[in-house]
Protein backbone atom coordinates (compact mmCIF):
# COMPACT_ATOMS: atom_id res chain seq x y z
CA UNK A 1 0.00 0.00 0.00
CA UNK A 2 2.78 2.32 0.90
CA UNK A 3 4.42 1.64 -2.45
CA UNK A 4 1.35 3.09 -4.11
CA UNK A 5 1.45 6.06 -1.80
CA UNK A 6 5.07 6.63 -2.68
CA UNK A 7 4.31 6.56 -6.37
CA UNK A 8 1.65 9.17 -5.84
CA UNK A 9 4.01 11.25 -3.80
CA UNK A 10 7.03 10.70 -6.01
CA UNK A 11 6.76 13.64 -8.32
CA UNK A 12 8.01 16.34 -5.96
CA UNK A 13 11.03 14.15 -5.21
CA UNK A 14 11.99 13.34 -8.76
CA UNK A 15 15.45 14.59 -9.53
CA UNK A 16 15.63 17.24 -12.25
CA UNK A 17 17.40 16.20 -15.46
CA UNK A 18 19.79 19.08 -15.25
CA UNK A 19 20.70 21.63 -12.60
CA UNK A 20 22.87 24.70 -12.70
CA UNK A 21 25.01 23.70 -9.73
CA UNK A 22 25.50 20.97 -7.16
CA UNK A 23 23.76 22.85 -4.34
CA UNK A 24 20.47 22.64 -6.18
CA UNK A 25 20.53 18.93 -5.40
CA UNK A 26 20.41 19.46 -1.63
CA UNK A 27 17.32 17.89 -0.06
CA UNK A 28 14.53 15.81 -1.58
CA UNK A 29 16.03 12.65 -0.15
CA UNK A 30 14.23 9.30 -0.35
CA UNK A 31 12.27 7.55 2.35
CA UNK A 32 12.79 3.81 2.55
CA UNK A 33 10.88 1.25 4.58
CA UNK A 34 12.99 -0.77 7.01
CA UNK A 35 11.52 -4.27 6.79
CA UNK A 36 13.66 -7.09 8.16
CA UNK A 37 15.38 -5.27 10.99
CA UNK A 38 11.97 -4.23 12.28
CA UNK A 39 10.35 -7.67 12.31
CA UNK A 40 8.18 -8.45 15.29
CA UNK A 41 6.31 -5.17 15.24
CA UNK A 42 2.51 -5.03 15.11
CA UNK A 43 1.11 -5.37 11.60
CA UNK A 44 -0.13 -1.81 11.58
CA UNK A 45 3.27 -0.30 12.34
CA UNK A 46 5.81 0.77 9.75
CA UNK A 47 9.25 2.21 10.22
CA UNK A 48 10.63 4.43 7.47
CA UNK A 49 14.12 5.83 7.17
CA UNK A 50 14.85 9.21 5.61
CA UNK A 51 18.14 8.62 3.82
CA UNK A 52 20.01 11.87 4.17
CA UNK A 53 23.16 10.32 2.77
CA UNK A 54 21.66 11.05 -0.65
CA UNK A 55 22.43 14.73 -0.26
CA UNK A 56 25.33 15.80 -2.53
CA UNK A 57 27.67 16.39 0.43
CA UNK A 58 26.68 12.97 1.75
CA UNK A 59 24.75 14.02 4.85
CA UNK A 60 21.79 15.79 6.38
CA UNK A 61 24.11 18.71 7.12
CA UNK A 62 23.89 19.99 3.56
CA UNK A 63 20.47 21.38 4.46
CA UNK A 64 21.38 23.63 7.41
CA UNK A 65 24.73 24.58 5.87
CA UNK A 66 23.01 25.79 2.71
CA UNK A 67 20.26 27.52 4.68
CA UNK A 68 22.72 29.40 6.87
CA UNK A 69 25.02 30.40 3.99
CA UNK A 70 22.17 31.55 1.73
CA UNK A 71 20.72 33.61 4.57
CA UNK A 72 24.12 35.20 5.23
CA UNK A 73 24.57 36.11 1.57
CA UNK A 74 21.06 37.61 1.50
CA UNK A 75 21.62 39.77 4.58
CA UNK A 76 25.19 40.78 3.71
CA UNK A 77 26.99 38.96 6.51
CA UNK A 78 28.77 36.84 3.91
CA UNK A 79 30.31 38.85 1.12
CA UNK A 80 33.28 38.47 -1.20
CA UNK A 81 36.54 38.64 0.73
CA UNK A 82 35.16 36.93 3.81
CA UNK A 83 36.04 33.40 4.82
CA UNK A 84 33.42 30.98 6.10
CA UNK A 85 34.61 29.50 9.41
CA UNK A 86 32.99 27.12 11.88
CA UNK A 87 33.72 24.42 14.38
CA UNK A 88 32.56 21.04 13.25
CA UNK A 89 33.49 17.43 13.75
CA UNK A 90 32.73 16.43 10.23
CA UNK A 91 29.50 16.44 8.31
CA UNK A 92 28.78 20.14 8.71
CA UNK A 93 32.36 20.83 7.75
CA UNK A 94 32.02 18.74 4.63
CA UNK A 95 28.77 20.51 3.75
CA UNK A 96 30.24 23.97 4.30
CA UNK A 97 33.39 23.06 2.36
CA UNK A 98 31.32 21.77 -0.56
CA UNK A 99 29.02 24.79 -0.64
CA UNK A 100 31.96 27.19 -0.20
CA UNK A 101 33.67 25.57 -3.19
CA UNK A 102 30.48 25.69 -5.25
CA UNK A 103 29.84 29.36 -4.46
CA UNK A 104 33.46 30.54 -4.50
CA UNK A 105 34.03 31.37 -0.82
CA UNK A 106 37.15 30.25 1.09
CA UNK A 107 36.40 27.95 4.05
CA UNK A 108 38.31 27.39 7.31
CA UNK A 109 37.16 24.70 9.73
CA UNK A 110 38.11 23.99 13.33
CA UNK A 111 37.87 20.27 14.03
CA UNK A 112 38.96 18.04 16.91
CA UNK A 113 42.18 16.30 15.84
CA UNK A 114 40.62 12.86 16.28
CA UNK A 115 38.06 13.33 13.53
CA UNK A 116 38.25 10.51 10.99
CA UNK A 117 40.88 10.57 8.25
CA UNK A 118 38.35 10.31 5.47
CA UNK A 119 36.52 13.35 6.78
CA UNK A 120 39.71 15.38 6.92
CA UNK A 121 40.52 14.31 3.38
CA UNK A 122 37.08 15.12 1.99
CA UNK A 123 37.20 18.58 3.59
CA UNK A 124 40.68 19.22 2.18
CA UNK A 125 39.65 18.00 -1.28
CA UNK A 126 36.98 20.70 -1.37
CA UNK A 127 39.84 23.17 -0.86
CA UNK A 128 39.02 24.08 2.74
CA UNK A 129 41.64 24.71 5.42
CA UNK A 130 41.53 22.69 8.66
CA UNK A 131 42.58 23.98 12.10
CA UNK A 132 42.87 21.22 14.69
CA UNK A 133 41.65 21.47 18.27
CA UNK A 134 42.56 19.25 21.23
CA UNK A 135 40.82 15.87 20.84
CA UNK A 136 40.44 15.54 24.60
CA UNK A 137 38.26 18.64 24.61
CA UNK A 138 35.83 17.20 22.01
CA UNK A 139 33.51 19.39 20.00
CA UNK A 140 33.24 21.92 22.83
CA UNK A 141 36.99 22.49 22.51
CA UNK A 142 36.56 23.14 18.78
CA UNK A 143 33.73 25.59 19.52
CA UNK A 144 35.94 27.54 21.92
CA UNK A 145 38.96 27.62 19.60
CA UNK A 146 36.80 28.77 16.70
CA UNK A 147 35.36 31.62 18.79
CA UNK A 148 38.92 32.70 19.64
CA UNK A 149 40.02 32.73 15.98
CA UNK A 150 36.99 34.78 14.96
CA UNK A 151 37.49 37.22 17.84
CA UNK A 152 40.99 37.98 16.50
CA UNK A 153 39.60 39.09 13.11
CA UNK A 154 35.83 39.48 13.28
CA UNK A 155 35.61 41.28 9.91
CA UNK A 156 37.46 38.52 8.09
CA UNK A 157 34.98 35.79 8.78
CA UNK A 158 31.40 34.68 8.49
CA UNK A 159 30.63 32.06 11.12
CA UNK A 160 27.43 30.11 10.39
CA UNK A 161 27.45 29.02 14.06
CA UNK A 162 25.28 25.96 13.57
CA UNK A 163 24.65 25.55 17.29
CA UNK A 164 23.06 28.97 17.65
CA UNK A 165 21.91 29.99 14.15
CA UNK A 166 18.11 29.70 13.86
CA UNK A 167 18.55 29.10 10.13
CA UNK A 168 19.85 25.65 11.05
CA UNK A 169 16.51 24.41 12.35
CA UNK A 170 14.70 26.66 9.86
CA UNK A 171 16.24 24.69 6.99
CA UNK A 172 14.67 21.54 8.41
CA UNK A 173 11.39 23.36 9.01
CA UNK A 174 11.35 24.38 5.35
CA UNK A 175 12.62 21.17 3.74
CA UNK A 176 12.97 18.00 5.87
CA UNK A 177 9.63 18.37 7.63
CA UNK A 178 7.56 19.08 4.51
CA UNK A 179 9.27 16.27 2.59
CA UNK A 180 8.41 13.74 5.30
CA UNK A 181 4.83 14.91 5.50
CA UNK A 182 4.48 14.74 1.72
CA UNK A 183 6.27 11.40 1.34
CA UNK A 184 4.02 9.74 3.91
CA UNK A 185 0.96 11.60 2.62
CA UNK A 186 0.45 12.96 6.07
CA UNK A 187 0.46 9.53 7.69
CA UNK A 188 3.57 10.05 9.79
CA UNK A 189 2.67 9.56 13.46
CA UNK A 190 6.11 9.62 15.08
CA UNK A 191 9.23 11.50 14.03
CA UNK A 192 12.57 10.36 15.43
CA UNK A 193 15.94 12.09 15.01
CA UNK A 194 19.21 12.19 16.91
CA UNK A 195 20.34 15.33 18.70
CA UNK A 196 23.57 16.88 17.48
CA UNK A 197 22.84 20.57 17.27
CA UNK A 198 19.14 19.78 17.61
CA UNK A 199 18.45 21.39 14.24
CA UNK A 200 16.81 18.37 12.60
CA UNK A 201 14.55 17.34 15.45
CA UNK A 202 13.59 20.92 16.30
CA UNK A 203 12.95 22.23 12.77
CA UNK A 204 11.31 19.22 11.13
CA UNK A 205 9.50 18.42 14.39
CA UNK A 206 8.05 21.92 14.57
CA UNK A 207 6.77 21.72 11.00
CA UNK A 208 5.18 18.32 11.53
CA UNK A 209 3.48 19.38 14.76
CA UNK A 210 2.05 22.44 13.08
CA UNK A 211 0.60 20.21 10.39
CA UNK A 212 -0.75 17.68 12.84
CA UNK A 213 -0.37 18.23 16.59
CA UNK A 214 -0.86 14.50 17.17
CA UNK A 215 2.54 13.73 15.62
CA UNK A 216 5.00 12.81 18.34
CA UNK A 217 8.52 14.24 18.10
CA UNK A 218 11.19 12.07 19.66
CA UNK A 219 14.92 12.64 20.07
CA UNK A 220 17.60 9.96 20.30
CA UNK A 221 20.42 10.90 22.66
CA UNK A 222 23.64 9.15 23.75
CA UNK A 223 23.01 7.46 27.10
CA UNK A 224 26.25 8.70 28.62
CA UNK A 225 28.66 11.59 28.36
CA UNK A 226 31.38 9.15 27.20
CA UNK A 227 29.96 7.66 24.03
CA UNK A 228 30.81 6.66 20.48
CA UNK A 229 27.87 8.13 18.61
CA UNK A 230 29.65 10.56 16.34
CA UNK A 231 27.38 13.43 15.49
CA UNK A 232 25.22 13.18 18.59
CA UNK A 233 25.46 15.14 21.82
CA UNK A 234 24.79 14.15 25.40
CA UNK A 235 23.04 17.36 26.36
CA UNK A 236 23.47 17.17 30.13
CA UNK A 237 27.27 17.26 29.77
CA UNK A 238 27.61 19.54 26.73
CA UNK A 239 27.38 23.18 25.78
CA UNK A 240 23.64 23.22 25.05
CA UNK A 241 22.99 24.58 21.54
CA UNK A 242 20.95 27.78 21.46
CA UNK A 243 18.60 26.31 18.87
CA UNK A 244 17.78 23.33 21.07
CA UNK A 245 14.53 23.64 23.02
CA UNK A 246 13.93 20.47 24.93
CA UNK A 247 10.42 21.49 25.93
CA UNK A 248 9.31 21.02 22.31
CA UNK A 249 10.13 17.33 22.41
CA UNK A 250 7.58 14.72 23.39
CA UNK A 251 10.21 12.21 24.39
CA UNK A 252 13.97 11.80 24.59
CA UNK A 253 15.30 8.26 24.33
CA UNK A 254 18.79 7.42 25.61
CA UNK A 255 20.68 5.06 23.29
CA UNK A 256 23.84 3.13 24.17
CA UNK A 257 26.71 3.15 21.73
CA UNK A 258 26.78 -0.65 21.71
CA UNK A 259 23.10 -0.87 20.71
CA UNK A 260 23.55 1.73 17.97
CA UNK A 261 26.62 -0.03 16.53
CA UNK A 262 24.77 -3.35 16.58
CA UNK A 263 21.91 -1.75 14.67
CA UNK A 264 24.34 -0.41 12.07
CA UNK A 265 25.75 -3.90 11.54
CA UNK A 266 22.27 -5.36 11.25
CA UNK A 267 21.13 -2.71 8.77
CA UNK A 268 24.08 -3.39 6.52
CA UNK A 269 23.43 -7.14 6.37
CA UNK A 270 19.66 -7.31 6.71
CA UNK A 271 18.63 -4.30 4.63
CA UNK A 272 21.62 -3.54 2.43
CA UNK A 273 21.77 -0.17 4.15
CA UNK A 274 25.31 0.81 5.11
CA UNK A 275 24.85 3.81 7.39
CA UNK A 276 26.67 5.74 10.08
CA UNK A 277 26.31 5.27 13.82
CA UNK A 278 23.86 8.13 14.29
CA UNK A 279 21.49 6.30 11.94
CA UNK A 280 21.85 3.20 14.10
CA UNK A 281 20.99 5.30 17.14
CA UNK A 282 17.94 6.78 15.40
CA UNK A 283 16.64 3.32 14.54
CA UNK A 284 17.22 2.00 18.06
CA UNK A 285 15.06 4.85 19.34
CA UNK A 286 12.51 4.40 16.53
CA UNK A 287 12.18 0.72 17.38
CA UNK A 288 11.75 1.56 21.05
CA UNK A 289 8.79 3.72 20.02
CA UNK A 290 7.43 1.33 17.37
CA UNK A 291 7.32 -1.67 19.74
CA UNK A 292 4.78 0.15 21.90
CA UNK A 293 2.42 0.86 18.99
CA UNK A 294 -0.34 -1.13 17.37
CA UNK A 295 -0.71 1.34 14.50
CA UNK A 296 1.56 4.05 13.27
CA UNK A 297 4.14 5.31 10.83
CA UNK A 298 7.46 6.03 12.47
CA UNK A 299 9.95 8.08 10.46
CA UNK A 300 13.59 8.07 11.53
CA UNK A 301 16.26 10.33 10.08
CA UNK A 302 19.39 8.48 8.91
CA UNK A 303 21.91 11.34 8.74
CA UNK A 304 24.53 9.74 6.50
CA UNK A 305 25.97 6.56 5.02
CA UNK A 306 28.59 4.37 6.65
CA UNK A 307 31.40 4.54 4.13
CA UNK A 308 32.86 7.68 5.64
CA UNK A 309 33.47 5.89 8.95
CA UNK A 310 35.66 3.09 7.63
CA UNK A 311 38.69 4.22 9.62
CA UNK A 312 36.72 4.91 12.79
CA UNK A 313 36.03 2.62 15.72
CA UNK A 314 32.59 1.82 14.30
CA UNK A 315 34.22 -0.43 11.74
CA UNK A 316 37.75 -0.97 12.98
CA UNK A 317 36.43 -2.61 16.15
CA UNK A 318 33.51 -4.50 14.68
CA UNK A 319 35.39 -7.76 14.83
CA UNK A 320 35.45 -7.38 18.61
CA UNK A 321 31.74 -8.06 18.62
CA UNK A 322 31.28 -11.23 16.63
CA UNK A 323 28.31 -12.08 18.74
CA UNK A 324 26.13 -9.17 17.73
CA UNK A 325 22.44 -9.94 17.61
CA UNK A 326 21.68 -12.74 15.18
CA UNK A 327 24.03 -11.52 12.51
CA UNK A 328 26.93 -13.71 11.46
CA UNK A 329 30.14 -11.74 11.20
CA UNK A 330 32.27 -14.60 9.98
CA UNK A 331 33.19 -12.86 6.72
Amino acid sequence: MLTALNQDAASPLRRPRKVDGIIELVGNTPLVEVRRTTRGLSRGVRVLAKLEGFNPGGSVKDRPALGMIRDAIDNGRLKPGRTIIDSTSGNTGIAIAMIGAALGYPVRLVVPANVSEERKNIIRLFGAEIVYSDPLEGSDGAIRLCRKIVAEDPEGYFKPDQYFNPMNSQAHYETTGPEIYRQTEGRVTHFVAGIGTGGTVMGAGRFLKERDPRIRVIAAEPDSEMHGLEGLKHMASSIVPGIYHEEELDLKIPVSTEDAYEMVYRLSQEEGLLVGQSSGAALVAAMDVARRLTHGTVVAVFPDFGARYMTTNLWTTWKESLDVGNVDFSI
Binding site: K61, S89, P112, N114, S139, T197, H227, E230, G231, S278
Partner: peptide, 11 residues
Protein backbone atom coordinates in the same frame (compact mmCIF):
# COMPACT_ATOMS: atom_id res chain seq x y z
CA UNK B 1 48.52 7.98 28.92
CA UNK B 2 45.69 9.60 26.99
CA UNK B 3 42.09 8.45 27.15
CA UNK B 4 40.37 9.76 24.05
CA UNK B 5 36.75 9.32 22.99
CA UNK B 6 36.75 7.69 19.56
CA UNK B 7 34.49 10.38 18.23
CA UNK B 8 34.86 14.04 17.72
CA UNK B 9 31.54 15.20 19.13
CA UNK B 10 28.52 16.87 17.59
CA UNK B 11 27.82 16.81 13.90
Amino acid sequence: ISIVPAIAGGL
